[in-house]
Nucleic acid binder design. Structure first.
Lengths: 189, 189
DNA sequence: CTTGAAGTAGACAAGTCGGTCTATTTTTAA
DNA sequence: TTAAAAATAGACCGACTTGTCTACTTCAAG
């Protein structure tokens, strides 16, 4: 599989579960079974490993969500599928995404609050990417671009809110509640 | 003001801006201008200082929000005021809450993912408290308890989503967008 | 078979971590 | 005024931090 990917996989898993500053490079190396020099052969610093982990998570998450939404008929059903998908995620039915510890990008921005930091920017880029995916599907049920933008925004806020509620409060049904609210927003009823 | 409160204030400010694991006890001491032994006189460990900081932020935030909502006529206007309040927060017009770095409780749960950890529990308790506040005001515009619960839930998700969008993506109008969506949910139009 | 790249273990550096301890000074109250 | 309480500076502890360096091994391609 390659040492580099081993490092990124292990780093992501540990960073996601415990936060980035709580995890030392030595722990990543030990759990990945890789020598220290190999890490600094592939990455110039811990920060660049962090960036790689964020990028990896971006692809992992986005591809999964896109596939799930595209697996349903275009329009209303595809949009609703997003909530079913994150519901599965919250309830640990998506091994690809690891156990649920909230949103890795939200958590990471909590540790990199400076919006100009490369890591923060990458997290923002991920959210923008997901928002675009939502907009694509929103257009299928809206008669104008403005309307699609507004619907995508509403669904996005509900989804983010559900992630937070599920993680902070441990509400495993947060996604279903968000879905019920979203359902009323998408015509036709 | 008391050394204890100096420590809690300083710790909260630093934890909020940089994350908890990124801030060492020595930095808190230096910026608070307090000796190390004094800290361990008031707190038995860093973790208990963290708990105190979370508790302090809970009161700071809740009292502020409650006051703002209660300053408006009961019902629809009080509910809408929540979005204006967080809009001011996002745009750094609430000195009490410091500069905006997202939600301290969400960020903190990103570093304390174990739901049984006292710090995580305190964050969950804060969110539950805010939810109850929302429910109180939702009852004023709803004809049944079930309806009030559902409305409060929708507004809560929109608010949490807006916080995330404002912080991660730097969208300073996220609260106003959430408000527009919420507005359509509250009868009478 | 050889050569060079890639990986290994582990010592090492310079600094920080949370936390303890001592010895001294300041503050508070009787 | 005096005695107790609280705060101070700073040494110290062992463990851990990111990152560098050396010396040795594994492995693949020509």
């Amino acid at each position: 599989m390659g040492r580099r990917q081993d490092l990124v996989d292990t780093a992501l898993r540990l960073f996601y579960e415990h936060g980035i500053h709580a995890i030392g490079i030595n722990q990543v190396l030990q759990e990945a079974g890789v020598a220290k020099q190999t890490l600094y052969n592939h990455f110039e610093s811990k920060d660049s490993l962090v960036e790689a982990a964020v990028e990896h998570r971006d692809n992992l998450f986005f591809d999964w969500l896109e596939t799930r939404m595209n697996s349903r008929p275009a329009g209303r059903e595809a949009l609703m599928e997003m909530f079913d998908a994150v519901h599965d995620w919250f309830n640990n039915r998506v091994p690809t995404l690891h156990r649920f510890y909230g949103c890795f990008f939200i958590n990471t921005c909590g540790e990199y609050s400076d919006p100009e930091h490369p890591v923060h920017k990458r997290c923002a880029a991920h959210k923008a990417r997901v928002f675009e995916l939502l907009k694509v599907h929103a257009r299928d049920v809206c008669s104008s671009e403005t309307e699609a933008e507004e619907l995508a925004n509403a669904l996005f806020l509900l989804k983010e809110g559900a992630i937070v509620k599920a993680h902070v409060e441990g509400d495993l049904d947060a996604a279903l509640k968000a879905k019920a609210i979203a359902s009323r927003m998408i015509s036709p009823h």
